[in-house]
Design a protein around this nucleic acid. Structure first.
Lengths: 372, 372
DNA sequence: TGCTCAAAGGCAAACGTTGTCCTAAACTGG
DNA sequence: CCAGTTTAGGACAACGTTTGCCTTTGAGCA
């Protein structure tokens, strides 16, 4: 099922068939011929050979890459499953493939390797890139490879991105605690990523706004994992006076913190109010159910892929079009871990997932998925 | 940086360069020439153009595919993040890419589309295929595409697979409850997949072995999600006498069941013992911590990828070599939800993750990732 | 009739490889 | 010194496309 075969059957030349299946140079081929060729192509289930196309055109095949740092907190978590779902969904509905690549260290060499034509992607989605000087971003720019960063918080103003308003989320979380009357509010940090920094900034802003002096001893490091949350909580409890509330940089930390607190004999929320960030699915199942800042991770992945595909189709890929920055909103989900208001039962946690994208449409030209 | 350019610089023909970089026909080229070419290739950072190679050889590029059914219980869960981690890890350490493709319906057409040379993968990993007549498997066989099924429980004896011993897991879970003295043991099922069936079979076997008559009213359906667990538990509680213990087909169901039971005023484990399956990471954080059957999902993903890569390298891909079937073992992790023995603190839940695979080695021939 | 012109389509080169078949030179033995 | 063999390498035809340019055909027009 090559163009050649179709051409032979139709009694025309390869060029003509190529023109028909690509729907190019419409004026160069008569309607009857076109119809005949189309018919044959369909009955033979013709699909263009992507290697050949790509080889000839120099354009890479319609696959987009996802660059994933090998941190267990992103790679092996709710975050990853949500974001990959979003990306995969969006890609599916546009008929493009997704090539996932993990990297262990972010040396220039690694990215050169990863992004070398070797993997052959049309563009990439960068997960958890950190800061301006990211070699990943650098490499993309050098390689003229369109990319979209997720959760980079605009670290690099020259790269398209989709972020959530981490600062506002942190602010709202902290403000919620303040409104409940807390003044000794601790913060358990995350890893050295911009989202953690932004959340911390929101925390500081809220306290400052409320005129509560910031006690640096109440700000302890974490690692975005339960272990870190537990340890941080132990540290906090060893100080005095101990905090009456804590805002953790993510839910895993918050859950770890809760567990350490309970083990130390504290009741939540009575002795300690806890608020997390992310709204991972179990947040509603822990005891007490965790009040947290909902981050629409799935949607962010979806948007990032859409954005990338859009750019590629508009073919603004190679020349720098206006930098788009999408910011999705977080919202505070109040459950039981802060007291004040008690949730009644398990609330709906549906993360607005777009209606199921239709399967690739019935199609007159089945071989044409969206060329990037 | 094509063979052509290197050839021009080295003053040799393209064929010679090809022979050198492919390390083929060693005797056809002198050591000096070889060294010279290698030197040039390295300094130019030569990478073979995968399109061209693939076009020429007819072999697909060294990328393996993962076929994921669009069920939120697999696609959007701990299961997915674990299994994809495993696959990605294994692929990374062998230098091959991973192309993930979601499918919504498992019609023959879908798979033809997915597996058509269009996506160009060397082999595929099938997730959650169900039963013998799976169109996915059929298509793979027709397309002579090597594949490995994960958690198919040997549904199709003609396909390589890696499974966990679901039956034994279900058996052990149930037996644990029996040993604790329970006789009215309920089961909350999963979806209509073979793993759910196997777990149920284990449940029946254990009861039968213990001489406990099976009460079909105690076996209720679920959907592998919390919602299903909750509903199932409500159903169970409306019957009488109510069960004193329940074995749920997976942790999500178990957590849902626990939550429904608690809401109905039951204390766990005193009024109701609960055991789950999977050992998802939050199993240890729910209250009380969930006793469950640990399923090494990460490892299964890793093994599946390794197995596939192994087959591809051995080039037994196209001809049917002996069917390999890998079975990984589950183990019961006893926590607090069944009473009897109380766990002291949070135990180590490390899922034996292989030592970090070394980054692609220092390499004499950087362009050679493992050709499949 | 001779001319131009548009419509419809063919030809062939190129993309970067691989592999088969060829050849020139150097070496071997007699 | 010559035939035969090895060694080291070159030429070239694919693989399935795309595309710029060329050719054929028939119609329109003076």
């Amino acid at each position: 099922m090559s163009l050649r075969e179709i051409a032979d059957i139709a009694g025309v030349s390869v060029s003509t068939v190529s023109r028909v299946v690509n729907d190019k140079h419409r004026d160069k081929v008569s309607d009857e011929t076109r119809a005949r060729i189309l018919e044959i192509a369909r009955s033979l289930r013709y699909r263009p050979n992507p290697q050949a196309v790509s080889l000839k055109t120099g354009r890479p095949s319609n696959t987009l890459g996802v660059l994933i740092p090998y941190f267990s907190h992103v790679f092996r978590s709710f975050y990853w499953s949500e974001i990959s779902s979003g990306v995969l969904d969006a890609a599916y509905s546009h008929g493009v493939g997704v090539n996932m690549m993990v990297y262990r260290d972010d040396s220039e060499e690694t990215f050169r390797e990863l992004l070398s034509t070797y993997r052959n992607v049309s563009g990439v989605i960068l997960l958890a890139v950190n800061g301006h000087a990211s070699p990943a971003v650098e490499q993309c720019r050098n390689g003229m490879l369109p990319c979209v960063a997720v959760n980079s918080n605009g670290a690099d103003p020259n790269v398209h991105s989709v972020d959530c308003d981490n600062r506002a989320g942190g602010y709202n979380a902290t403000r919620h605690l303040i409104k409940l009357g807390h003044t000794r509010i601790a913060h358990i940090g995350g890893r050295d990523f911009s989202d953690a920094h932004e959340r911390l900034k929101g925390y500081r802003d809220a306290l400052e706004e409320a005129g509560i002096p910031i006690d640096e001893r109440l700000i302890v490091g974490g690692n975005f994992e339960e272990t870190g949350g537990r340890e941080a909580m132990r540290t906090l409890l060893s100080g005095s006076p101990r905090p009456s509330a804590v805002f953790a940089a993510n839910d895993d930390s918050a859950i770890g913190a809760m567990s350490a607190a309970k083990r130390a004999g504290l009741r939540i929320p009575d002795d300690l109010a806890v608020v997390g960030f992310d709204d991972i699915s179990v947040a509603q199942y822990v005891e007490p159910a965790l009040t947290t800042v909902h981050q629409p991770i799935y949607r962010m992945g979806y948007r990032a892929a859409e954005m990338l595909i859009g750019r590629l189709q508009a073919n603004e890929g190679r020349n720098g079009a206006a930098i788009a920055r999408d910011i999705v909103h977080t919202r505070l989900v109040i459950r039981e871990s802060c007291g004040g208001r008690r949730a009644n039962g398990h609330e709906d946690m549906s993360i607005a997932r777009p209606a199921d994208p239709a399967p690739l449409s019935g199609e007159e030209t089945p071989w044409k998925s969206q060329r990037l």
